[in-house]
Simulated assay, not measured.
Amino acid sequence: METNNHYFYVLECADGSYYAGYTNDLQKRLEAHNAGKGAKYTRAKGPVEMIHHESFETKSAAMKAEYAFKQLSKPQKIHYIAEGKEDGK
């Protein structure tokens, strides 16, 4: 039985801002953002680059991680992403 992957991801926009979201297909979602068909926030701030993602077994867990990330300050978000990259995420 194949498991569904649920992802929390972070994009860096062309203006240096971050966008956090949820998807079950990272590549398709990144392409949608860069085609102007993603979130309203990223339409005017493209192109975007995926700088972080985490995989979860459930949609709920991925969305909780997204929510927690959105509550962080910009310096905390930078640290969080740096820590994730050190862990190979």
Rank of each mutant, 00 (worst) to 15 (best):
M1Q: 09
M1I: 05
M1R: 13
N5L: 01
N5V: 01
N5P: 00
H6A: 03
H6G: 06
H6V: 06
F8M: 14
Y9S: 04
L11G: 02
E12C: 03
A14Q: 05
D15Q: 11
S17K: 05
S17P: 00
S17A: 08
A20T: 09
G21Y: 00
T23M: 04
D25Q: 08
D25S: 08
Q27E: 11
Q27C: 01
Q27T: 07
K28W: 03
K28P: 02
R29P: 02
L30M: 06
E31I: 10
H33S: 03
A35C: 02
A35N: 14
K37T: 04
G38T: 03
G38H: 06
G38Q: 04
A39R: 09
K45D: 03
K45S: 08
G46L: 12
G46N: 11
G46A: 11
P47R: 09
P47H: 02
P47T: 04
E49Q: 12
M50C: 07
M50G: 01
I51T: 15
I51V: 15
H52A: 10
H53A: 04
S55H: 09
S55K: 13
F56H: 13
F56S: 05
E57D: 14
E57S: 10
E57R: 09
S60R: 13
S60N: 10
A61F: 00
M63Q: 15
M63A: 01
K64P: 00
K64T: 08
K64Y: 05
A65Y: 04
Y67R: 14
Y67C: 02
Y67D: 11
A68N: 10
F69M: 08
Q71F: 01
Q71H: 03
L72F: 13
S73T: 15
S73V: 02
K74C: 00
Q76E: 15
Q76M: 01
K77F: 05
I78H: 02
A82C: 02
A82I: 03
A82M: 07
E83N: 12
G84I: 08
G84P: 01
K85D: 04
K85V: 06
D87R: 13
K89Y: 14
